[in-house]
Simulated scan of single mutants.
Amino acid sequence: MATIPSLPSRDDVLRMARNTTDITGQLLDTAGNITRIAINTFDPRDGSGAEALRVLRETTAELAEASASPQAQEAFYRMVDTLTRLGTSGAPLAVHPVSEPAQALLAALGDSLLPVLDAVEPAVEEFATAVGDLIEATSPLLPAVAGLMAGALLAATPVIRSTAEVLRDGSPELRRMADALTSTLAPLLPLQVALAERAATAGAGVARAALSPLADLTEAAAATTQTVRPVLIAGEELLVSSLEQLQPLLLAVASRAGRLARSAAVRVSAAVAPAGERGVVVAVPA
């Protein structure tokens, strides 16, 4: 006889309602932001709507022209062919008997990771918020970083292309190397399996023997930490107060260094300026 599942508790219901309310509020905020962006973009009063439509039409025309080229069509064909090959070769793996242990492993990992994910969810949310703030603060640097990455990719493209050509020309030698490695390593695989089984058995014995001392050591470390906790808190408070006292001095030193650097830059610019521009005098406060 099947057991009747227990009803969720009041705390669970409140938590689900709170999460639903938060998600709904975030969705409404996102929809409001998207609506505001659309209104500001296509507002005909300041002329931005017509400009945005013009840029959109030009971009669409350029994309259509680029995608109609033979090179783009060849690239699309290769992408579709690659995806088709991956799907054809990977589909039998899903029903192969070898995939059953992998599915069991994934199920066990999922059951074990759910409590861990519930425990670390607040920390992950705080970390995601902090990362978002960091990205927003460093957004002025993103164009420069993107330019550097594009330059690095352009510089690496000839190397990758030449490497591919060399490997393509040397495919017979590569096949000979693969055959030699296979014939050499194939007789060693049974020995390696036996050694791995022996190592696993020995490692399991060592782990069983070390669990009890590790538990005792962890309990002792926890007790020691609880004992010296006031000392650690006092040290942290002393460090923070010292940094707070040094903050005005560091700010003054940084400001003074900035003024000196600007003064030096102005003097160097005046020294290397053409003779016709010597009538311009720039005063930098000390």
Rank of each mutant, 00 (worst) to 15 (best):
G147V: 00
A104T: 04
P143E: 04
R57L: 09
V95M: 14
A156E: 15
E121R: 12
Y77F: 13
I135K: 05
A137K: 02
P140F: 15
P97V: 07
V120R: 00
V145M: 04
E74R: 12
P92W: 01
L109E: 12
T138P: 01
S99H: 01
A91W: 10
P143R: 00
V95K: 03
A66I: 05
A150R: 06
M79R: 08
V120S: 01
A64I: 01
L117H: 02
F76V: 11
A68N: 02
S89W: 05
E121W: 01
E100D: 06
L113R: 00
A123R: 07
F127S: 15
A91T: 07
V145W: 03
L142N: 03
R78W: 11
A155M: 14
L114P: 00
T59M: 04
A130E: 07
A128I: 04
E126M: 07
L153N: 11
A102F: 07
T157K: 13
A102E: 06
A164Q: 00
S69Y: 05
T82W: 13
P115N: 01
A123M: 03
A94G: 11
E121L: 03
Q103W: 00
L117G: 05
L142F: 07
V116S: 01
G90L: 15
A66Q: 12
V159P: 07
D118K: 10
V116H: 00
T59R: 13
V116E: 07
A123N: 08
V80L: 09
S162M: 13
P158R: 12
V145G: 02
S99V: 05
E125C: 03
A68K: 00
P92E: 07
P101F: 07
F127Y: 10
D81H: 14
A102H: 01
A107Q: 04
P115A: 11
F76C: 07
L86E: 13
A150E: 13
I135G: 02
L56A: 15
A91I: 11
A156H: 14
T163S: 11
E121I: 06
E125I: 11
G90R: 10
T163R: 09
E65K: 02
P97F: 10
D133N: 08
V131D: 12
E58G: 05
A108T: 10
E136S: 15
S139M: 14
L117V: 08
L93Y: 09
F127H: 10
S67K: 02
T157G: 07
T88S: 13
P97Q: 02
G87L: 12
D81I: 06
P122Q: 05
T82N: 13
P92S: 01
V95A: 14
V124F: 06
L83E: 04
A104E: 06
E100F: 05
L106M: 07
T129D: 10
E126N: 06
I135L: 12
T84L: 12
F76N: 11
H96N: 11
A61S: 14
R85E: 13
L153F: 15
E62I: 10
